[in-house]
């Protein structure tokens, strides 16, 4: 599904290398987690993959089902099936959540040559999916993320994910700012989306989230590279011992 090969990335504005030869492959249907200390380049990875401005790829590449990701505009990547759940979802006053969501869904459908959803079809779909995430009609009507609590914002991200049905979901510290109940809701939403044709890359500081969203593979990232990969037990090891020993061991 997602293949990252020897990716080198620097900031455009300053001469600072963030990713230094990162390689990773997430096969279809699998959940991979990336853990790592602050400043290891986790968020940069998620931004570079989804096409945010301000980064320059100096070497290596990334493909989504064989298509060169890095050549595409962010909206093209989205239409190709990539989704980034933001660590800090953005508030957009004056633009209704429903309007935004419907525009996004239909723009993607149009880009893929599919028929757009009518407002009736869209409403029916969004109501059903919102209900599962305990997002009420009032929240749907409000401007995008405005006045939402931290948990509501993250649930709104998962609602977007559920509506857009991406094949490759990147979740950037989705657990940050969530209490236990909200974490369970969000995790249930993600788990409901797991299937053989959809992959996840879960970026997190803590093992906690991985109790709810069980990964197939855990990668440890440090200084712009993957330094160790293993099973879910690797996450538990981080939780117990911290990154120190692991990183020392990885050299």
């Amino acid at each position: 599904m997602l293949k990252i090969d020897n990716l080198h990335v620097k900031l455009e504005e300053e001469d600072k290398q963030i990713l230094k030869g990162l390689s990773l492959e997430v096969p279809a249907g699998e959940v991979h987690a990336i853990m790592g200390p602050n400043g290891s380049g986790k968020s940069t990875l998620s931004y570079v993959l989804s096409g945010r401005d301000g980064y320059e790829v100096t070497e290596g590449g990334a493909t989504l089902e064989g298509e060169d990701l890095l050549d595409m505009d962010p909206e093209e990547r989205a239409a190709a099936g990539l989704f980034l759940a933001f660590q800090y979802p953005v508030e957009i006053p004056g633009v209704g959540n429903m309007t935004f969501l419907r525009t996004a869904v239909n723009a993607q459908r149009k880009a893929r040559g599919e028929e757009e959803l009518s407002s009736g079809e869209f409403l029916k779909l969004v109501r059903a999916k919102a209900k599962d995430l305990q997002i009420d009609a009032e929240m749907l009507k409000r401007p995008v993320n405005v006045g939402f609590s931290g948990g509501e914002k993250k649930r709104n991200e998962i609602l977007q994910m559920a509506m857009l049905e991406p094949r490759m979901c990147i979740m950037d510290e989705t657990d940050s700012g969530l209490d236990v109940d909200a974490m369970r809701l969000v995790s249930d939403g993600v788990n409901a989306l797991r299937d053989a044709g959809r992959s996840f890359l879960v970026i997190t500081h803590y093992q906690r989230l991985l109790n709810h969203i069980k990964p197939d593979v855990v990668h440890i990232m440090s200084n712009g590279r993957i330094v160790k990969s293993g099973g879910p037990e690797l996450a538990l090891q981080v939780e117990e011992e911290g990154y120190g020993d692991l990183l020392a061991e990885a050299g």
């Binding site: 953005v90 957009i92 004056g94 633009v95 869904v105 723009a107 401007p143």
Partner: peptide, 27 residues
């Protein structure tokens, strides 16, 4: 950041700008 957020959801650039201008005028 808002522009990237909209585009990352598949909203085309020009449409995203329209949203953000309307957002600016909302008050």
């Amino acid at each position: 950041t808002a522009l990237f957020y909209l585009r990352s959801r598949g909203v085309p650039y020009e449409r995203a700008i329209v949203f953000l201008v309307l957002s600016f005028l909302a008050d």
